[in-house]
């Protein structure tokens, strides 16, 4: 089977500033890929370019294939059906990624209804409600029946991220893009959300593009990593290989920083 995402020599420019330079990246069905780098290295931009959601004013060159469809230069109309079927995205800050004026249950129902319609079924309200409850149970949101009627600001950060994950799952995508999904959460919640994501990806046979600046977090959920710096891919390979024997200076410094942080933590304890 061909790759879900095939990015070849992608460059993105804002005016004469180069944001991405010759980035290549491919994700096969079921594959779990980590995209690592510091803030501003172009991780999120790469992910947005993959689904054709670059901000107006940015110019892209190269090739981006999403499920065989060329994304660069394509009309929004041709890409719309791919978003939500091929990919779904979980963002960093669940508070702003959820509509503040809609109860969370209804927000999950939205992509769910779209998917069921696409499958040729106009779901009844009761069926939709039941499916929303199922999704909320899958993401382990406590007391889903009451919580689905709550507004985003009435939930905790971790609960909100679970809702956002449920929204992405509602699309039943082939590829889940998780853009720093644990960065805005406290450490305990981080671990829970990571376990949840890993389990859901495995259960549903989804591919995963996990974007993070946090090495230990990435190492736990992916098979292969792509390391980016200043808009350039500096290293790529299986996670164990890259982390045990980093070839590029930048990767080495990332690994060293993570190790020294761990040592510092152990020293304190």
């Amino acid at each position: 089977m061909s790759n879900l995402v095939d990015i070849g020599n992608l460059s993105v420019q804002a005016g004469n500033r180069t944001l991405l330079d010759n980035v290549s990246l491919s994700i096969a069905p079921g594959e779990r890929v980590g995209l690592i780098g510091e803030s501003g290295s172009g991780k999120s931009l790469t992910a947005l370019a993959a689904i054709g959601l670059l901000a107006p004013g940015l110019t892209a060159s190269g090739s981006v294939q999403l499920a065989g469809q060329q994304v660069i230069g394509a009309q929004d109309r041709t890409l719309m059906p791919l978003r939500g079927t091929v990919t779904a995205t979980v963002f960093q800050e669940p508070l702003t990624a959820l509509d503040p004026l809609l109860p969370v249950g209804r927000q999950i129902a939205e992509p769910l209804r779209r998917r069921l319609r696409r499958d040729g079924r106009g779901p009844s309200r009761a069926e939709l409600d039941a499916k929303v409850q199922t999704l909320l149970t899958q993401v382990a949101l406590p007391d889903p029946a009451t919580r689905s009627r709550r507004y985003p600001h009435e939930l905790s950060g971790g609960q909100r991220q679970r809702v956002a994950i449920a929204m992405a799952l509602a699309c039943r995508p082939q590829l889940l893009i998780a853009d720093e999904p644990t960065t805005a959460l406290d450490v305990t919640t981080q671990a829970e959300i990571l376990r949840l994501l890993a389990k859901l990806v495995a259960d549903n046979g989804m591919a995963l593009l996990f974007i993070s600046h946090d090495l230990p977090v990435v190492a736990r959920v992916v098979d292969r990593v792509v390391v980016m710096q200043h808009g350039v891919v500096v290293e790529t390979g299986p996670v164990a290989e890259v982390f045990s024997a980093p070839r590029h200076d930048y990767t080495r410094s990332l690994v060293a920083a993570a190790r020294s942080f761990d040592r510092a933590l152990e020293g304190v304890a």
């Binding site: 719309m80 978003r83 702003t96 004026l101 992509p111």
Partner: peptide
């Protein structure tokens, strides 16, 4: 400009859908 509009677009919501479900209520 808000994230939930981007989120809606990544899940394949059409522009009219975004106006009706997200923009007008907000």
């Amino acid at each position: 400009l808000l994230d939930y509009i981007t989120a809606a677009r990544t899940s394949g919501t059409s522009w009219p859908g975004i106006v009706v479900t997200h923009v007008l209520p907000n």
